[in-house]
Amino acid sequence: MALYSGMVYLYKRDNMAHICIKSIILSLIFIFLAGCNKEDKLEKEIAEIPVTITIERFDKAFSKVDQKTLPALKQQYPFLFPEKYQDSFWIQKVADTLQIELANQVAKKYPDLSTLKIKLEGLLQHAKYYFPEITEPRVITITNDVDYHNKIILADDLLLIALDTYLGKDHYFYESIQEYIRRNFKSDQIIPDIATVYAKQLVSLSKSRTFLSNLVYYGKVQYLIDLFLPKYEEYTKLGYSPEQLEWVRVNEEQIWRYFIDKETLYSTDADLSPRFLYPAPFSKFDLEEIDKEAPDRIGRYIGWRIVASYMENNNVSLRQLLMMDAETIFNKSKYKPRN
C-alpha cells in the first residue's frame, strides 16, 4: 500500500512538473506572439505613411554630356557645377579616360535602381514615423572621383549618392585604399549609410569631451539606425562582418571591464576616440594578443548597448532620449555587458 501511495505521489509530482513546464512554454509562446503582433501592427502603420521618391541619374546624364547639352544640364543641377569652373573644364572631365571608365563601371554595376528606390522609401517611412518633420529629399546619384569621405551627402533636402564608392570592396578602383575602409564599398551598405546620415542630423554633438559622452553620442546614432532599419542584420547596421559582430558579442564583458579598469569613461584623453570609435584597422587596446582580432569602432557598439538598455529600463520618449545627457543615460541605463 505504501508502495502504491508512493507511485501515486511520484505520478502526481511528475504530472504537476509537466503541467508547469507546459504552462511556461505556452506563456513564452504567448509573449513571443504578442511581441510579433505588436511589431506587425507597427510595421503596417509605418507602411501606410506616403513616401514616393524619384532617383535622378545625374551620373548617367553627365557621362553623355557635350558642349551642346551642357547648359541644360547645368540649369537642371546648378549645385553640382561650381561657378569657378568654366564649361571647358566639364567637357574635358567627361572626356577623361578615367572618368569614362568610372562611368562605365557604375553603369555596369547599377543599370537599374528600382530595388534601391524601394529600400530607400522604406527607410524614409520609418524615419518619418519617428520624426514626421523629415521631408522627402530630392535623390540624385553621382560619381565623385571615389571620394569615400563623401559617399552620402544630405543637405537642404538634397540626397546625393556617390555610386562610384559602392562598386564592391574588391573592385580594382579601390586597390590603393586600405581594406578596413573599402570593406563597406558595397551595394548593401548604401541604405545603412543613408540611415547613418539621417541619424547624425538628429543627434546633437555633446559639449562634454569625455569618452562616455562620445560613446553615448554614437550609441544614440546607432539606436536611431536600428529603428530606421528594423529588418536589416545588426552587423550590416554596424558596418561589420558577421564574424566581427560575433567577436564583439563574445567579448563584450571583457571590453567593458577594460574600459572600467582603465578609467576611460570620464577621461578626456583625445586619443580614446581614434582607438575605439573611429574607422581603423582594429580597436587599439594596446594588447598584442587582442588588437589584431578586435574590430574597429568597438565603442560604438558599447554605446548602442548602453542607450538601448536605457530605453528598455526607463519610460522616456525618443525625443527625450535625444535631449538627455550622457551621464544621466549611463547612470539610469542599468547596463550590464553580456557574459
Results as ranks from 00 to 15, higher is better:
49 I>S: 02
5 S>Y: 10
216 V>G: 01
333 S>E: 04
232 Y>N: 06
95 A>M: 06
222 Q>A: 08
177 I>A: 06
101 E>F: 12
170 D>T: 15
292 K>H: 09
21 I>C: 09
149 H>D: 13
240 Y>I: 04
27 S>D: 02
278 Y>D: 10
163 L>Y: 00
223 Y>H: 05
247 W>K: 07
65 V>K: 04
100 I>E: 11
25 I>M: 09
184 N>S: 07
94 V>Q: 14
33 L>Y: 10
156 D>V: 11
278 Y>W: 12
80 L>R: 01
308 A>F: 00
313 N>G: 06
25 I>K: 14
315 N>Q: 14
263 E>Q: 13
91 I>A: 08
314 N>H: 08
31 I>D: 09
68 K>D: 11
85 Y>C: 05
226 D>M: 05
112 D>Q: 05
12 K>Q: 12
25 I>V: 15
245 L>V: 01
98 L>F: 10
234 E>F: 03
179 E>G: 07
318 L>M: 04
148 Y>H: 14
123 L>E: 05
323 M>D: 10
145 D>R: 10
23 S>W: 00
150 N>M: 06
237 K>P: 01
25 I>Y: 10
231 K>L: 08
322 L>I: 10
7 M>N: 12
94 V>A: 08
118 I>P: 03
103 A>Y: 02
11 Y>L: 13
259 F>Y: 10
239 G>S: 11
216 V>A: 01
331 N>Y: 09
117 K>M: 06
46 I>C: 06
78 P>R: 02
286 D>Y: 07
204 S>A: 15
186 K>Q: 13
63 S>V: 04
298 I>F: 01
85 Y>Q: 04
259 F>K: 05
96 D>M: 04
21 I>L: 13
27 S>K: 11
257 R>S: 13
189 Q>A: 12
320 Q>E: 13
202 L>M: 12
287 L>V: 15
288 E>K: 14
39 E>N: 14
157 D>K: 13
85 Y>A: 01
227 L>G: 03
171 H>K: 04
320 Q>H: 06
206 S>K: 04
129 Y>W: 11
32 F>E: 12
5 S>R: 15
